[in-house]
């Protein structure tokens, strides 16, 4: 594989974390335009951990995930009492606050005679963990996909669990969920925290893959795309947003001739899907039918053997 393919595949993997993050909140029925903030916080926190504090990469990813998750839960606790659009706007406002704060924050320390750390609008350079250990892009890509697989398994287990049912109840009808005894705000804060962790892991990986991060990357377009991935791929299963990412970053990137028109094609695709399949390619009903078919086949198989 050449570096270009590895870079595209790695981007698909890293963006998938933000897509899953937005998806988890969509499941509970709230639309966040601000998941890029937790991707950014994860990137900065993880970069600071390995480049400034010289901690190992796993500690960096863990710190990135925790910082993003705690922040997301805290912001969620303050804003999830707002309804619908008001909540969505508050997520956008917070994400812009994070970006603007990162544009002015300068905290640098001396490591091996060089200044390392966030330098405001200049970004945060020299997150050199990969170079120092002579790790290739391919090897790092494997780390990305190993973590993505782990996260995906965790999400699929959550969906099969009782917590997953509760998330879907909130997403389907939060008044009914409330009338049945569920603390709607409480469970949404939990979902927001978990979503923050997912975005934070993605950001932590991104910082180390590109070796530098700058606030401009965590702008609202990243958040809007993250939302769109779930809406394209479908809200019926965690595979949905991954399909959305693969269609956008993979397919549209690969088909070179539409390169310049990518945003137009992407926007058109989102519009068409929202009209004809408002809950995406793999929506709840299609997932239900697929599961029923697999179960029948499984039962027939068991009966035949």
């Amino acid at each position: 594989m050449d570096d270009y393919v590895i870079t595209v595949l790695s981007n698909i993997g890293m963006i998938s974390f933000v897509a899953l993050s937005a998806y988890l909140l969509l499941l509970t029925g709230v639309i966040s335009f601000g998941q890029q903030a937790y991707f950014g916080l994860g990137a900065y926190a993880a970069g600071a951990a390995t480049a400034m504090l010289l901690l190992p990469i796993w500690a960096g990813i863990l710190i990135g995930a925790c910082v993003a998750g705690l922040m997301a839960a805290l912001v969620g606790a303050l804003t999830l009492r707002l309804r619908g659009l008001y909540f969505s706007i508050s997520t956008l406002a917070f994400a812009e606050m994070v970006r603007l704060v990162l544009l002015i924050v300068e905290v640098q320390v001396e490591v091996d005679g060089e200044l390392v750390g966030p330098a405001g609008a200049e970004g945060f350079h020299d997150i050199r963990w990969m170079f120092e250990r002579d790790i290739s892009l391919g090897e790092f890509m494997l780390l990305i996909y190993a973590l993505l697989a782990l996260v995906l398994v965790a999400l699929l287990l959550i969906e099969r669990s009782r917590l997953g049912s509760i998330f879907r109840m909130l997403g389907s009808d939060d008044l009914l969920a409330d009338m049945q005894g569920l603390n709607v705000v409480g469970y949404r804060v939990l979902a927001a925290g978990l979503a923050g962790v997912l975005a934070g892991i993605g950001g932590a990986l991104y910082a180390h893959f590109t070796t530098y991060v700058e606030p401009q990357f965590f702008n609202v377009m990243l958040g809007v795309h993250a939302l769109a991935y779930g809406l394209i791929g479908g809200l019926g299963t965690a595979f949905g947003p991954l399909i959305g990412v693969a269609i956008d970053v993979g397919f549209l990137e690969a088909v070179r001739f539409i390169q310049g028109y990518r945003m137009i094609v992407f926007g058109g695709l989102v519009a068409l899907l929202l009209i004809f399949m408002p809950r995406g390619l793999l929506d709840e009903e299609r997932v239900h039918r697929l599961k029923a078919r697999f179960r029948r086949r499984g039962d027939a198989h068991a009966a035949g053997s």
Partner: peptide, 28 residues
């Protein structure tokens, strides 16, 4: 809950009253 089955709707109502703590939530 329109995209849940009849069974799931009734189970969900029962479960909403007694989520059973963090470990209970993670059971399938």
């Amino acid at each position: 809950f329109p995209t849940m089955t009849v069974f799931q709707n009734v189970w969900a109502a029962q479960h909403a009253r007694t989520p059973g703590g963090l470990l209970g939530l993670l059971r399938s």
